[in-house]
Design a protein around this nucleic acid. Sequence first.
DNA 1: GCCTAGGTCCCGTCA
DNA 2: TGACGGGGCCTAGGC
Lengths: 223, 223
Amino acid sequence: MPDKEMITVLEAPTREEAAEAVKSALSRRRILMMVGNCWVNYQGRARSILNPGERILIIKEDGSVLVHRPRGYEPVNWQPPGCIFHSGLEGDVLFIKAVRRKPREVLQVFFDKIYFLAAMSLLDKGEFSLHASEEEMQKAIMNQPSLIEDGLRIIAYEKKVEPGFVDVYGVDRDGRLVVIEIKRRTAGKEAVLQLSRYVDSLRGEHGRKVRGILVAPKIARQA
Amino acid sequence: MPDKEMITVLEAPTREEAAEAVKSALSRRRILMMVGNCWVNYQGRARSILNPGERILIIKEDGSVLVHRPRGYEPVNWQPPGCIFHSGLEGDVLFIKAVRRKPREVLQVFFDKIYFLAAMSLLDKGEFSLHASEEEMQKAIMNQPSLIEDGLRIIAYEKKVEPGFVDVYGVDRDGRLVVIEIKRRTAGKEAVLQLSRYVDSLRGEHGRKVRGILVAPKIARQA
DNA sequence: GCCTAGGTCCCGTCA
DNA sequence: TGACGGGGCCTAGGC
């Protein structure tokens, strides 16, 4: 199944072999994975220096770059998609330079030992679906307002008002306007402030009673 | 340089070989990299399903998990450090289950084709230094307040006030309190609101003139 | 443990 | 194009 065209693996390549493979992979927009001893410079929105150590480098076909240390969820250095690459040998060192414009950012990775290198073209058309987002909760409320309160009628959703957005907008059984702000997780004072701004702006606009409801699994101690 | 102990590579392993290598790598807390055809389920703070496709799986020695598609900076599925793993063969499918407690989250990856697999122990003691952060800007201002204004004396930094934090806190040449909010990049209305809340709270507390200064490379059109 | 704020956040959306 | 807010955000620092 992994045919030569699809995936190329080099174990302990020389720097020359690696340099060749890197150039080929980058020019053909193949995915590149490398493991070895490297150091990294970054300059752009900030500046960083990573001293030598053993890491994993991944360059994807869209020109994104990841440098991963042996621990941690996040890459220690990276570049978002759209980079342009330069690579080659500088003495005994294999360098890869990833340049992003807008904003201008340059990432440089230098390898003096390469333990492993793989270049590949992966086919991935699989659909990805994520559930239980704020949007899903909003739909549920739209479909069944009684989840919040009996007699509640939904008028609009994501209706724009002065300071920003309202998630759901309705009228309760006593004819008062109701503004519902949905937070999928613990709501902090940010959310409370946001909602109170909505309510104030609507109260000023309509001159009648307005209620704000915050829908969240939990609320911090600023209730 | 890559000795057998340090890195093990299997090209196109059988599922049985792969299952064995995965179990061994996970139990010995080695880093695992796999490329192949897989699908992924996640359930925890949200829920997600990723249909079959060719991807890269990385499990690090601290128990973090990354599933990367051929494009994009971000992993499509992941698990933060600290996971506990279960793996094995279920019929023709190799599964890896990563469980996190607190919050309870489960990630399951299923492979039906494995193109290659690498298990390794990487040594990375390299220091990482990042410059030009908000912290760095604060230090610069602390050391040389005249950067902001002549006659400015710094009193405190990150002093707590009612609504949250103040970055730097001082007195200007006319004896007025000065609150300095530092943003490393373009400041939006968020930052302005934050600062005005600081100023209000201090004004109420001290009953005297308070000035707010927003330090940022650019400010959005809400100045 | 919860809560808060920053991030080279990234990313989508919309004016 | 910039501005704004969400994210399974993650991560570090207080309390």
